[in-house]
Design a binder for these strands. Structure first.
Lengths: 325, 325
DNA sequence: GTGAAAGCGCTAACAC
DNA sequence: GTGTTAGCGCTTTCAC
């Protein structure tokens, strides 16, 4: 493996100049710069990131912490982060907490000293712990907002309102909300937005694990609640609700309308295709990575709230007669 | 941030002893070991991975290269890798090639000098390039086999045979195969297994992008081919085929039976639920990580081929009359 | 604009 | 067993 030293020798310059030519091109004369670049190219030089990190005190790595990599929501965000990071010649260290707060804490502690910045995606930790982490190094929170910290989140409230307006326009008057994990900030946001809507009766059937199985479990509660429509915490849960409804002989949207959240790929290709509040997931990954790059301890931490969009597909339709009561 | 130096001072030992206490506990007296561990704990010591890597010459990081993180297949493998790596106190650097060979090459070159080992998942590169990479450092190939290299793959042939036997038992005589990317090793494996089966006419309708959209495009070819059943490269493609079949007014499995590959979560919760060849993806991630750990340049590189299983759900049924010709 | 030299935090001989 | 010493490959003052 060729080292910077080798490149320097090959180019007939000092290691310092070689280093500058690569990282501060402007501070080196054109001629030497070219000699160095050429030598680096020719020798197939690859910087040793560990040495760079050790010497400079800052790692180029980005740490990405997600609750569940196998969840398409996080996988999509991760893809966005990864592509943006690559553009900036940085690598991404991903860690999966398995939806466990203890694991999350540990991972953050482990990761933070070894990365240049941390992307906390849907963190389940209490706010003060997140703030502690941010005090130790650059942190951007994704899909959650923490006062005083940089974050990228979604305009959930307007999504909820659009979904509810859509249902009301279809004649629904009683809709069930199937929630997500109690530790989820975005679930709290959805709930908060629910209470703000008039003309519609909302029954909260409780929180579920944010995966398909959670929806399956919730479907029976929805039926028992006598709702003609359901808004789910996310698409996975919505899909679970639909599956169970179907299994119990109910038609979607004939008997019950279903709306999800996120617009994961599967939402478009299940049948009936799922009406859902689409979140710009990949873009969130991009934005978060960009924010992290430009984070300035002095300045007011930037907060970006991405717009969402109701995508109406085939899982919502005119209200049927109430199932009961 | 507390350094090993700090810990050593606090424990009243030399840095070397502190280092040993943490990485080679057996080589330090019980008393000092405890003093060091206690001090480390108390100071919240976190090893600087960059320094470790630089000093020891080997990084603890595992580099994971996948074609598409948003593809549930790879996301699931990644989750397996990640969980196993964490158990071994190693971090995972993921990189997404976007199914592009050039990007893959670049990423491997970038990543390799900075990780302790590389996990190449479904690499699209030619064999000799993969072998070159393996010559430069520990490499385990996942979902592909390369002569002379360590790999974790799946017993695809027996999966294909099980699928075909299932279809034949249902009375099908003409089945279409919808392939994946031409650069895909596992697609070649599937094709090879197809030719080995008698009593069944196989029509190859060509390769597609290994995602939902690929299946949608292929469905019309399937219909035109007059097949009563289709075996798809993977579940995503199978789902795409089903969606298009449905859109064209054909029933699954009434008119056409569909079988996928992989058993991604969505396979179970679409309707009709997809019959598919299940691959132990998480386990593959585990095994690959374990192999990487134990890789010994001297020894014969280990090859593990994981068993697969046909999961029969609702997308396959008795053969209908041929659609045409 | 350029080079010499120090040192980031850690591990690994090497002596004791 | 334990401490001393010398780097790993790079960045970064600091002089020139």
């Amino acid at each position: 493996m060729a080292t910077l030293q080798d490149v320097a020798v090959a180019a007939g310059v000092s290691p310092a100049t070689a280093s500058r030519a690569l990282s501060t091109p402007a501070s080196v004369s054109m001629e030497r710069r070219h000699r160095v670049l050429e030598a680096a190219e020719r020798l197939g030089y690859r910087p040793n990131r560990s040495a760079q990190a050790l010497a400079s005190g800052r790692s180029g790595h980005i740490g990405l912490v997600v609750p569940d990599l196998a969840n398409p929501f996080f996988a999509t965000v991760a893809k966005g982060v990864q592509s943006q990071a690559r553009g900036a010649h940085r690598s991404v260290l991903v860690a999966d907490t398995d939806e466990d707060v203890r694991a999350e804490r540990e991972i953050v502690d482990d990761l933070q000293p070894n990365v240049g910045g941390l992307l906390l995606c849907s963190p389940r930790m209490p706010e003060d712990e997140i703030r502690d982490a941010a005090a130790r190094g650059p942190v951007v929170v994704v899909n959650r907002e923490v006062a005083g910290l940089a974050s990228v989140s979604f305009d959930v409230a307007s999504g909820v309102h659009a979904a509810l307006a859509h249902l009301r326009a279809l004649g629904h008057t009683r809709v069930a909300y199937v929630g997500g994990p109690s530790t989820s900030w975005s679930d709290a946001r959805r709930r908060a937005a629910l209470t703000e809507v008039a003309g519609l009766e909302i029954v909260d059937v409780g929180g579920q694990r944010p995966i398909h199985q959670g929806g399956v479990a919730a479907a029976d509660l929805v039926i028992a609640a006598g709702a003609t429509a359901v808004l789910a915490y996310n698409d996975l849960v919505a899909l679970g609700v639909m599956a169970r409804l179907h299994a119990r002989g109910l038609s979607v949207p004939g008997d019950v309308s279903v709306i999800g959240f996120d617009d994961i790929p599967a939402a478009a290709y299940v049948s009936p295709a799922l009406t859902t509040v689409a979140l710009p997931l990949t873009r969130a990954g991009h934005e978060a990575t960009t924010l992290l790059d430009g984070l300035d301890a002095a300045a007011e931490p930037p907060t970006v709230r991405l717009p969402v969009e109701l995508v109406v597909r085939d899982s919502t339709g005119p209200a049927a007669l109430p199932l009961k009561g």
